[in-house]
């Protein structure tokens, strides 16, 4: 089964091609463990040669690894202007380090975040920062280990599309979006807390 995409509240066809990073030794090592890599500081990820060796289609809508985009930025100008370029990065990459290099985030019709393990809740804070700190307005997608029981929280953290893990049924997952009807706190989808929305 291929991963199904939920966008808003519907299952839709994914018209983006997700370009993966070139496989190198280091990556294998990093992803083999049960745990999600912890990066506070330290060596660059992905490694330079990996970025250079990554290839992607010459035409059409393509979702590029953040660093690959930065590497080819000059030659991608036109495609970016045509709305053909999106970027993705993993939960342990620190977007604030690259913000200057990539310019206005709203040039991208799509940003996607890869979550390797269900239990990795960094994705929520990344969503919240993209929406509220960096004012990203376009499609924000979660992919990787994305399951029914996260997507309510993902939605509330500013995501609006979800590529469900490929062994799971999106028609089931979509029900997760309705788990709670009137949440307490203000977050990225509903900004105001319940006491400001309602007369209590």
């Amino acid at each position: 089964m291929k991963s199904q995409l939920i966008k808003g509240k519907n299952i839709v066809k994914d018209d983006w091609v997700t370009s993966e990073l070139a496989k190198v030794e280091e990556i294998v090592k990093m992803q083999a463990g049960k745990v999600v890599a912890f990066k506070l500081s330290g060596e660059d990820y992905p490694a330079n040669e990996q970025v250079k060796e990554s290839i992607f289609p010459d035409t059409g809508k393509v979702l590029l690894p953040l660093k690959v985009f930065i590497h080819h930025q000059e030659k991608l100008k036109e495609r970016l202007a045509n709305g053909e370029i999106g970027i993705w990065f993993s939960t342990h990459e620190e977007i604030h380090k690259f913000i200057e290099a990539i310019g206005d985030l709203n040039n991208f019709p799509l940003i996607a975040i890869h979550v390797e393990k269900f239990a990795d809740g960094r994705i929520f804070s990344i969503g919240s920062q993209l929406r509220n700190k960096y004012n990203f307005k376009n499609e924000l997608r979660a992919f990787g280990d994305v399951l029914r029981d996260q997507i309510f929280f993902l939605k509330r953290s500013g995501f609006n599309s979800y590529l469900i893990r490929k062994d799971r049924d999106a028609t089931d997952a979509i029900k997760g979006l309705d788990d709670f009807s009137d949440p307490y706190q203000g977050a990225s989808d509903i900004l105001e807390p319940v006491w400001k929305r309602n007369k209590r």
Binding site: G121, L154, S157, Q185, A187, V194
Partner: peptide
């Protein structure tokens, strides 16, 4: 208590 209940961003902390 209310604010933290199902806070979407802090559901899966370290």
């Amino acid at each position: 208590r209310q604010w933290s209940t199902f806070h979407p961003e802090f559901a899966l902390l370290p």
